[in-house]
């Protein structure tokens, strides 16, 4: 699990005493910081250079535009599609599919996870079946989903849900199992009811694990969406790409790829933000503190 940069954490956690107790900068730490800035700059030089080489290769004609368009051409296409509004329409359609699929799959995975986490009976009844289905790469079910749902919205949401269920399920069960038995003993000593124990102790204790599942499920959701959309759709980013393929519009195809990447990165940072919000008590996420 990557930690966000320390500055962001310090700003986030500004109320904590540790943030206030920052040592004064010494010459040495200043040197270290300028070295870090240098490294940070260097880490950006390489990708920018790569982009420039790509641009140069396309402009000089070494790479035909039907094979790979110049980055500038992709940017131009993005601008055009955005100004007609069609790009946002397709983006919206894709996002809605992903969100609905994620919500459905997440709810099912969480419910099953809670059930199995709490009840040995439910575990005996459910767990082995789920584990067996999980062993199947869920994308292999694609042809089957097309027969069941056609290539409509239902098929896409189903595939996304299917991919999301398992990481959420597994991490929910794991999280509930990992709750410290000493805290459960405390719940008995304090006379907590069953429901209060779940709400105050078990679910918060399971939350780090559940959020790990959410993060993983987000990545899976995007993979499922790309595959489902590419096979057949009347709208959405995948449709945009497949439509462009007919006309060898590699600029549009590359644009959709870039957008998929951006959305993937965006959803990951949302998940990270969620972790830092909900787990600010946790030394690994909340930053400073002993």
């Amino acid at each position: 699990m990557t930690l966000a940069d320390p500055q962001a954490i310090a700003a986030f956690d500004a109320a904590s005493p540790a943030a206030a107790r920052k040592p004064a900068p010494t010459p040495q730490s200043r040197a270290a910081r300028s070295r870090q800035t240098g490294l940070l700059a260097l880490s950006w030089v390489a990708p920018v250079l790569l982009l420039l080489v790509w641009e140069a290769l396309c402009r000089s004609g070494y790479v035909a535009p039907q094979i790979l368009p110049a980055p500038s051409k992709v940017a131009l296409t993005a601008w055009k599609l955005a100004s007609t509004g069609s790009l946002f329409h397709d983006l919206g359609v894709s996002l809605l599919r992903a969100a609905t699929g994620f919500a459905i799959g997440g709810l099912i995975g969480f419910s099953l996870g809670v059930l199995v986490g709490f009840s040995p009976l439910a575990e005996a009844a459910i767990d082995r079946s789920v584990q067996m289905i999980r062993a199947v790469p869920f994308l292999a079910a694609l042809p089957l989903t097309i027969i069941w749902f056609g290539v409509g919205e239902g098929q896409k949401m189903f595939l996304v849900s299917l991919g999301v269920v398992f990481p959420i399920y597994i991490n929910t069960v794991l999280g509930i199992r990992q709750v410290d038995p000493k805290l459960l003993e405390l719940a008995r000593v304090q006379g907590l009811s069953g429901w209060t124990t779940i709400r105050r102790i078990i679910l918060p204790g399971a939350l780090p694990s559940i959020l790990t599942g959410v993060r993983y499920a987000l990545a899976v959701a995007w993979l499922a969406l790309v595959v489902a959309e590419t096979v057949g759709a009347q709208a959405g980013l995948g449709f945009l790409a497949m439509d462009a393929r007919e006309f060898l519009r590699t600029d549009v195809i590359v644009l959709t790829i870039v957008i998929y990447a951006l959305i993937g990165a965006g959803s990951d940072s949302i998940a990270r933000l969620l972790e830092r919000r909900l787990l600010r008590w946790h030394p690994n996420f909340g930053g400073s503190g002993r």
């Binding site: 000493k182 405390l186 105050r200 918060p204 204790g205 939350l207 008590w281 946790h282």
Partner: peptide
């Protein structure tokens, strides 16, 4: 051990 809930 204190057994405080770390999330509260």
């Amino acid at each position: 051990e204190h057994r405080l809930l770390p999330w509260d």
